[in-house]
Design a protein around this nucleic acid. Structure first.
Lengths: 338, 338
DNA sequence: TTGAAAGCGCTAACAC
DNA sequence: GTGTTAGCGCTTTCAA
């Protein structure tokens, strides 16, 4: 059986297609009884308006797209999943269509962002997983729909910036280490193409300067958010600078690599050397006596992004998406003083 | 600036819209030079064919939808993420459109599956996260597109069943315990509304019977895939049956609850009591000397599901989606004999 | 309260 | 090789 069209419904109901259209779209100028009858018939026939036809007729559904850069087979920190489900739920709660799109470095050079938006007929856009050098960041002027980026600052003022205050959080973590007597604190950071790396690095320096400690470039390790690289580099670092008494890491994953290197030298994490991570991934609570870390809530980020874009679409006053909250979760890997 | 239409391109190129359409859709009856010129002009104008218009014209894009039931804010086992990225990548690799949809118990009663498919104009469907009592399982006759379900058997023969052999895997795990001297083995299972629970339970019984051990119903605990429930019930169980020397759990999450209860009694996991889980979630390797578990590859499942549906759409001979592989990963919580 | 008719952007017969 | 035209399913004036 072919798909029922509005014409089929009209025929069966003995009215014109205009009336069917009106009845089904809650127009007021339809006899209540007629409407009832038509609705019933449509339901029986399993009639579903053809979106293409609707769109051609001039009725466009609003859609928020979530564009994820570089979607990987696994998501160790759960961040992508959290963001995804957050945006998705925000759309559901606000009764607006949600679609998921993906891209990568190559596609970004091949298909302009504008084209992506047009193809999907987007009304609003949320982006996640982007790096500072990504081509799409340069194309923000071209798209004329509300747009939000998660965890990366863009230089375009009307693009919403959904992120927590990474600089402050990092500073707080490092200050915590200092307050607890650590003086030789190394940084294990992501690459400079991730905006959060820059901010977390800056927070690290800020805390050291606050305390009058020297900021040494060779104490700032880049491990690209990779556990193994962090492990390797920490091994070498410990060799060269055995006086280190703490590591602040820009991700829990890297922190795990760091801890592994520490323990391999027969040292105890949380004793001779304190470690603080970032994210509070699920494993964090279990390892090395519990990893002290900055917790962030990716679901909330996604939800806020979706909601903010929705409100912008609806022309509501620009919500000042205040920086997301974070929380320093203190566990065994870097204890507070009693 | 308004969105460019095919007419705009035609005008600028000084040809008819037909020619533009042909040029852009790789028809052969266009002068190569004309085509070149039109393509260039279209690119310059940022022309993107309106999908609705295309669809009305009779050119329908093929779409595979992934329908996830009960999408939660977090995904502790990473299974949903893995499946999602798997299906997504399969679609990319085969150059077919991918869309993500979600539903839940309530929506299932309100909107027929058929309607969902029609609305999204699906060509193929992959479903994940469903339970045996879910309404959509009864509506499979109505939809007339290729369809695959992940981790749940349907009674419809032409619906693809993407899953690993849960019964065999469970049997293997329990046999492993027996082979290593365990004789009093309890089962901690999910609820009976999850098909995998039934299969894993059956595999557990199978192994016991193979070994001539008694299957005792009160040794089969239902913990609904919840860590805390598993913890609570295990506490009570240990009280009542202190002779237990092993637990086989239908998920790692539950296994964690079980281990917690065991250690709380001052016993050592892997010594007095062995524990085997299921899934191999990221934390598994780290806890309780490493959790012995059945590893499954959700990304692969998603990928296979997407690929199988694609092949069905393309009319290729029905791939016999052989049962996914699994692997018993032996770690400290249930060691093998030397 | 209802319906006839135009038109949305595109494709595909078919004519030229 | 190129253009004319009809028509896809729907919404929306506008007239009845």
């Amino acid at each position: 059986m072919e798909r029922a069209t509005i014409r089929d419904v009209a025929k069966k109901a003995g009215v014109s297609i205009t009336t069917v259209s009106k009845a089904l779209n809650d127009y007021t100028d339809v006899n209540p009884e007629t409407r009832k009858r038509i609705q019933e018939i449509a339901r029986q026939m399993n009639y579903v308006p053809n979106v293409a036809g609707r769109s051609m007729g001039g009725r466009v559904d609003k859609v928020i797209g979530l564009l994820i850069n570089d979607l990987r087979p696994i998501d160790p920190s759960g961040s992508v999943y959290g963001i995804l489900s957050g945006v998705c739920h925000a759309c559901q709660d606000n009764n607006i269509e949600f679609i998921l799109m993906t891209t990568d470095g190559k596609q970004q050079t091949q298909r302009p962002l504008k084209v992506l938006c047009l193809r999907k007929q987007l009304t609003g856009l949320v982006c996640a997983g982007f790096r500072l050098h990504d081509p799409y960041l340069q194309q923000l002027e071209e798209i004329d729909i509300p747009c939000a980026f998660i965890d990366i600052r863009t230089d375009k003022p009307d693009v919403l910036d959904i992120t927590m205050d990474n600089e402050r959080a990092a500073r707080e973590a490092v200050s915590f280490l200092i307050k607890n007597g650590r003086k030789n604190i190394a940084l294990v950071n992501g690459g400079p193409d991730a905006d959060v790396s820059i901010l977390r690095g800056s927070g690290y320096r800020w805390a050291l300067e606050d305390a009058g400690l020297t900021v040494r470039p060779d104490w700032m390790i880049t491990a690209n958010f990779d556990e193994n690289i962090a492990y390797q580099k920490t091994r070498a670092f410990l060799e060269q600078y055995p006086q280190v008494d703490a590591f602040f890491c820009a991700s829990d994953l890297m922190a795990l690599g760091v801890c592994r290197a520490i323990e391999e030298r027969g040292l105890t994490v949380g004793e001779e050397i304190a470690v603080i991570g970032f994210d509070d991934i699920p494993v964090a609570r279990y390892l090395h006596g519990g990893l002290t870390t900055i917790r962030q809530d990716f679901y909330l980020m996604g939800y806020m992004a979706g909601k903010a874009i929705y409100q912008k679409i609806e022309g509501q006053p620009d919500v000042h998406v205040d920086h997301m909250m974070y929380e320093l979760v203190v566990r065994g890997s870097a204890r507070g003083k009693l």
